[in-house]
Each structure stands twice: as structure tokens, then as C-alpha cells.
Design a protein around this nucleic acid. Structure first.
Lengths: 208, 192
DNA sequence: AATTTACTTTTCAAAGC
DNA sequence: GCTTTAAAAAGTAAATT
């Protein structure tokens, strides 16, 4: 009886110590990513579940925290790539992705499929574009979805191309280079998505 | 939507047990075109030109043969590997025991798959287009993993028998159809 | 800007670290 | 877990030309 209580107390204290350290990491990375309290709270909730299920054993706290933050961002529709999050940890993208997959499988957490529209908002804000341009870009994404042009494509690349087109249509042109940079994709990808979207959606670009 | 899937076996991974220990250092000296660096990997790498397969040979007498596209090709390759090793002076006795460990196949359902919808309705799936363009589906029976693309093409892996591949393809087609996740291809260029 | 090469994902065994 | 081997799918990336 006593021994059982002792074991339980020991496990609880180890979870507490782990959580204390993890919450510091979560706060640090979350602030570097400019995440709101709501997203950080969601990440904390996911991390707590992961610890209770023993998913952190044999893994670095930092990687699991990063994976929890990624899952929280996805659930809260706060577009952040795995690379953006992993850059603030000692682990690489591959290790954080491994922890993320583990969280998806082991915890009963529903994460919606990444939406290019979430990246439209993020890229638009980083470039200081108007709400009208962002709405145009979101419309382009919606039409592309309905035509089946988005399946399997990187949402960041799709959003980058939609922003490029929308900015041209709304007369606040940005170069493919600066859009690609904030979107975290290459200019070639922006160009490829741009070609496909303008062709398939029959969008006429006014010549400068 | 008629079922007209085309299935291709792309790779068979098998283990071969020779039931005798081997001197890999001697093998590296006498058999040409082999790679052996025990610090990097414990197996000796032997490439057979026809049938084009690669074999990892271990000192325990066990080997891994990869690259065969059919069971016939696999058996032929194992016979030729042993014949080649004997030709270069390796003493091999007894008949090898061949076990297929994994079959990788590709298939084309000739339909367009709505991956967003499938990701939402299908169980045991993972669809992360930021990471990989295919939807990863873990099927319980037969126990295989399918990588499904919006083009209707897919990869089936983890099967131990060929009939499991065909069964899995038929099953995923039926499942995608009942979930209303497929639509016909507008116009398809014929492949020859 | 077009090619080529290469990496992402999944599966599996082998022996050893 | 890692190391090595093979293979496909489609997207993205980087290096050449």
C-alpha cells in the first residue's frame, strides 16, 4: 500500500519537474515565434498530455515542446512551418517532425489539414499588404481548391503565388523574391504555382 | 466508377539464409565489384547485373536481396549470386532458404482522389502536404501502408505476398468510392 | 529557364553500435 | 535509434548548363 503511494508520488514529481522545464522552453520558443497566449496555452495542454502518456521518454524535451507548438499552431490556424519552429531548437526539422507524428498518433488530437489561406494571412501581414489584397489571394486559393489544384502542394508555395497574383491585381506589386523569402519557399516554386494558377483559373495579369 | 487499377510490383526485399558462416574479408579479396567497409556497415554489398538486384551479405551467412521485380526474378537472382560466389572460390553448401520480407508496388486507379476529403473521412491516415504530397494510409487488413496521390497513383508497401497488394488496392478503391473521394479523370493521355 | 541530381515519405531484413 | 540497400509516387530544392 505504502510502496504503491511512494511510486506514484515519485512518478508525479518527475512529471512535475519535466513540465516545469518544458514550460520554460515553451515560453521561450513561443515568444521567439510571436505566438499569442492562446496558442501557447494550447501547446502546453498538448505537451502535458504527451508527458502523461510517456511520449517524452528517450526524446529531448525541446523536440516534443516544438512538436506541441507546431500542433497547437495548426489547431489554432496560426501558419508556421516546421522549419520556422525547429530553427529555435537544437533539434533538426526531421526530429521535430518525428515527435509531431508521434503526438498525432498517440494522443487523440485532431489537426486540420494545413490551409494555404492561413499562410496568405501570415505572408500578407509580413509584407504589410492591404486587406483587399489578402482577400483577393484567399479567393484565388478557394477557386484553386475547387478546381483540385491544391492537392499535394505545399500550402506556403500556393499562398505565395496567390499573394503575388493578388498584389499585382490590386496594384501593390511585390517581387517573387521577397514573397518567396517570407513564405519560406524558392522563387522557382512561386513561379511554378503562379503559372498553374493563372493558367487554370484564367487570370489575366495587367501588363505594367 | 469502374475499377480498372493497374498494379506493378516495383521492388521485393527478401532474406536468404545460407546456414553457414562466411569470411567477408576473403570474399572482398576474391570477388570483384563488391563493397565492404565493416566500420560503416556490417554487410558486404554485392551487385548482380542481371537480374539487377543488390545483395547485402553478412558473416552469419544471412543475406538481404533487394531490387527484384518478381518472385521469379528473385529466385533467379539468388541462384546467380550463389553461382557467382562459388565461381570466385567461396565454399557454399546446402540450399538457400528464401523469405520475402517486403513487397513494394505502385498502382494507378485512373481516377482523381480528393485528398482533403479523404484525410477528413479516412481512419489511420496522415496527410501533410508541407512535408509530403501523398496521403499516408495504414490499412489493417491486409496490413500494408499506402501512399495515395491526388492523381490516383499510389505506392503500396509492407506486403509479404503479391495477393495482399491487389487486395489492398481493390479495398482502398472501394473505400474511397464509398466516401465519395474519387472523380473521373477528364482526359487521360494513354501510356505505352 | 530548362536539365540533372537529390532529397522528402513508407516498408523490411540483416549485425552492431 | 542509427548505419546500408531498393523502389515507386509528386513536390520541392539546389546545382549546372
Amino acid at each position: 500500500r505504502w510502496r504503491k503511494w511512494q511510486i506514484r508520488a515519485r512518478i508525479q514529481s518527475s512529471i512535475d519537474r519535466n513540465l516545469a522545464q518544458a514550460m520554460n522552453e515553451l515560453e521561450r520558443i513561443g515568444n521567439l515565434l510571436n505566438l499569442s497566449k492562446a496558442v501557447k496555452d494550447e501547446a502546453a495542454l498538448i505537451y502535458r498530455k504527451a508527458v502523461e502518456k510517456g511520449l517524452v521518454r528517450g526524446r529531448s524535451i525541446e523536440s516534443v515542446v516544438a512538436a506541441s507548438i507546431y500542433a497547437a499552431c495548426r489547431r489554432m490556424k496560426m501558419a508556421r512551418t516546421l522549419d520556422e519552429i525547429a530553427q529555435f531548437t537544437k533539434a533538426n526539422r526531421k526530429e521535430v517532425a518525428r515527435c509531431y507524428r508521434l503526438i498525432l498518433r498517440e494522443l487523440e488530437i485532431d489537426v486540420p489539414v494545413s490551409d494555404p489561406k492561413d499562410y496568405v494571412t501570415r505572408i500578407g501581414n509580413l509584407l504589410g499588404l492591404s486587406g483587399a489584397t489578402m482577400r483577393t489571394a484567399a479567393d484565388i486559393i478557394e477557386k484553386a481548391k475547387n478546381m483540385g489544384l491544391t492537392a499535394g502542394k505545399d500550402p506556403a508555395g500556393l499562398a505565395a503565388a496567390a499573394i503575388y497574383i493578388a498584389a499585382l491585381l490590386n496594384d501593390e506589386r511585390r517581387t517573387q523574391k521577397e514573397i518567396a523569402q517570407v513564405a519560406g519557399v524558392t522563387e522557382v516554386t512561386v513561379r511554378n504555382r503562379y503559372k498553374e494558377l493563372t493558367q487554370e483559373l484564367k487570370i489575366q495579369i495587367p501588363s505594367q | 466508377m469502374p475499377y480498372k487499377a493497374v498494379v506493378n510490383i516495383e521492388n521485393i526485399v527478401a532474406t536468404v539464409t545460407l546456414e553457414q558462416s562466411l569470411d567477408l574479408y576473403a570474399m572482398e579479396r576474391s570477388v570483384p565489384n563488391v563493397e565492404y567497409d565493416p566500420d560503416q556497415f556490417p554487410g558486404l554489398i554485392f551487385r548482380l547485373e542481371s537480374p539487377k538486384v543488390t545483395s547485402l551479405i553478412f558473416k552469419s551467412g544471412k543475406m538481404v536481396v533487394t531490387g527484384a521485380k518478381s518472385t521469379d526474378e528473385l529466385i533467379k537472382a539468388v541462384k546467380r549470386i550463389i553461382k557467382t560466389l562459388k565461381k570466385y572460390g567461396m565454399q557454399l553448401t546446402g540450399k538457400p532458404k528464401i523469405q520475402i520480407q517486403n513487397i513494394v508496388a505502385s498502382a494507378n486507379l485512373h481516377v482523381i482522389v480528393n485528398l482533403d476529403k479523404a484525410a477528413f473521412l479516412l481512419e489511420n491516415n496522415m496527410y501533410e502536404p508541407e512535408q509530403f504530397p501523398g496521403l499516408i494510409y495504414r490499412m489493417d487488413e491486409p496490413r500494408v501502408v499506402l501512399l495515395i496521390f491526388s492523381s490516383g497513383k499510389m505506392v503500396i508497401t509492407g506486403a509479404k505476398r503479391e495477393d495482399e497488394v491487389h487486395k489492398a488496392v481493390k479495398r482502398i478503391f472501394d473505400r474511397l468510392a464509398e466516401l465519395d473521394c474519387i472523380r473521373p479523370v477528364e482526359e487521360e493521355e494513354l501510356e505505352f
